[in-house]
Design a protein around this nucleic acid. Structure first.
Lengths: 153, 153
DNA sequence: CTTACTGCAAACCATTTGCACGATC
DNA sequence: GATCGTGCAAATGGTTTGCAGTAAG
């Protein structure tokens, strides 16, 4: 038995693109060749590329595409849930000096980071194959969403 | 029964400072008033401040301290494990277009982000109180350390 | 007394913004 | 044809670097 209409069912390449086109429509975005190209290039890799990296790749097919478009489009994709920001940002680095185990919840609206404790999360075990391949220095459960203060608005 | 000599035992303010001073010594760092002030200011808050935010605070006590010092010192603290970078960086934003559930391991040496799967991590449950307070849009287990390629060097 | 740290200024890099042209719907 | 998206250029913001003076060990 298979679930139908699963919004995240985009395993096969052709389905991905039509899923993406549909998402654009639903969100009132125009389907431009640049957008499609950027989305395809992003989904095509597991290297978690930066805008610049993607720009270099896409340029081979669309030599006139600008870095700004790639940058802006990626942010747009993130807004409609077709992409995720996994690292970095132009924003300032932020630090934590607290020693004890704790997890972070980050509000995507106001960028506030809230600490929380949950013993179950403290106890999670890193799988053996990861442990063998890498030296793990830090592990944490990371949550993202809308915080209480932003919800009230 | 209490564990002695626990390196992360810095719950009480005075112990924190002496722990920090000790860490500086062990790592061959000089104990300057600026460093101590920055460390204290960082540990004193749970707001995950940026260098600039901390700078503004510390300025009240040490009006001549520069933002650069705060910036550099925070990075130094991170190197000796007295602080952690929890968000941002001057580095470029990086994106992920993959839809399925997966976790990230990030190498702190080469900044490579490696995807991995672990069913146990897919199944972790967000605690009820968090769920009540926030709207959780994404949850992921985040690992940090040294990757296989960097270990070989 | 030596070495490392600090403060200042300039340089750097990624991102953002404003605007006019061009493409999509 | 109206609106949204793109490309270009300039501006911005955070971080990094080089250097000379200063303080810690």
């Amino acid at each position: 038995m298979r679930k139908q209409n699963e919004t995240t069912n985009r395993a096969e390449p052709e389905k991905r693109t039509s899923w993406f086109v549909e998402q654009c429509r639903v969100n009132g975005l125009k389907v431009t060749p640049q957008r499609v190209a950027i989305y395809e290039a992003l989904v095509d890799t597991d290297e978690h590329p930066s805008a610049e990296t993607l720009h270099r790749k896409i340029r081979k097919l669309y030599p006139r595409i600008s870095l700004d478009t790639v940058n802006r489009t990626l942010l747009t994709l993130a807004e409609i849930g077709a992409a995720f920001v996994v690292e970095g940002s132009g924003d300032a680095r932020r630090f934590d000096g607290r020693a004890g185990k704790h997890q972070h919840f980050k509000c995507v609206k106001c960028n506030r980071i809230v600490d929380f404790h949950h013993k179950v999360f403290d106890r999670i075990k890193v799988p053996a194959d990861i442990r063998k391949r890498f030296r793990v220095l830090r592990k944490t459960v990371y949550l993202e969403g809308i915080c209480d203060m932003c919800r009230k608005r």
